[in-house]
């Protein structure tokens, strides 16, 4: 039964306020295998962030079922790591202490947490900036701190909401390569929301395309690239070009039809 890591079955999310009703997601069905890397792409406002919040239990579904490892999600889940669109760091804590917030809240053994934090700091290239306060870090570094914080407790599912949106192209590529490596090392299931089609294809096993208002699954693309993906060569693969073109056409068509 516990076949899927993330299971979203025929889910609709409606936001109701005094001024208007917004159907953010309509009849969305999506299944993610454990250890899979799935990206979600779609135009702004189509409900991508909503989808991640739904999966983590931060938002309730108006209709339909959400399950994590076969367990129904009702209420915030703690067996996940979440990277928000904004870095959401505590201004008064140093980079390292922001990462360790995860451990403090979960009451993890201090020694183990510290070792894991050191490991992640090195892995993401934050060495030397452990004691810097968030406002002393660049946007990209802040986002890396948020990533470390999300990975500290080795979550079985990692949810990332446009984590690299604020980065320059080059740093972004580096982060992509790093993320791919981290994913391979940890075997975590990843759900990544992104606006970059290239990023989605390079990183993922599967790309889910969402159309706008109301958000529905417009299509799913399986990326048939090898597991080992060196950045340059992968970009040059015919399969890469095929997948990106497919997604671009599909999203373009979806937006044009609106």
């Amino acid at each position: 039964m516990a076949g899927y890591a993330v299971e979203i079955d025929d889910v609709t999310v409606r936001f109701r306020s005094k001024k208007r009703d917004v159907t953010a997601l309509a009849d969305v069905t999506m299944h993610v295998e454990p250890g899979e890397f799935v990206s979600i792409v779609g135009p702004s406002g189509c409900g991508k962030s909503t989808l991640l919040k739904l999966s983590s239990g931060l938002l309730p579904a108006s209709k339909g079922d959400v399950r994590l490892f076969g367990e129904p999600v009702n209420g915030p889940r703690k067996d996940i790591g979440y990277v928000f669109q904004k870095a959401a760091l505590l201004e008064w804590r140093s980079a390292r202490k922001n990462i360790l917030l995860q451990a403090e809240m979960r009451k993890m053994p201090a020694k183990e947490a510290a070792a894991r934090a050191d490991e992640l700091i090195e892995m993401t290239g934050l060495t030397g900036f452990e004691d810097a306060l968030p406002h002393e870090l660049s946007g990209g570094m802040q986002q890396r701190v948020a990533l470390c914080r999300a990975l500290l407790h080795r979550p079985p599912v990692l949810l990332m909401d446009e984590p690299f949106g604020a980065l320059d192209a080059l740093t972004r590529e580096q982060m992509n390569v790093e993320l791919r490596r981290i994913w391979q090392e940890t075997g975590t299931t990843v759900l990544l929301v992104t606006h970059s089609i290239a990023e989605a294809v390079y990183l993922s096993d599967q790309v889910v395309m969402i159309s706008a208002r109301p958000g529905t699954v417009a299509g799913v693309v399986d990326v048939n690239l090898p597991v080992e993906r060196d950045y340059g060569p992968t970009m040059a693969e015919p399969e890469f070009a095929k997948a990106t073109r497919h997604i671009r056409d599909h999203l373009g068509a979806a937006t044009a039809a609106e």
Partner: peptide, 27 residues
Amino acid sequence: VDPEMLQLSSTMGAKSGQTFWKIRFPA
């Protein structure tokens, strides 16, 4: 306090006391 910060805290399984002392109060 940034509502996302509070959401983040709930994904960490934080008790409301922890959220208060570590996030709300200092903020």
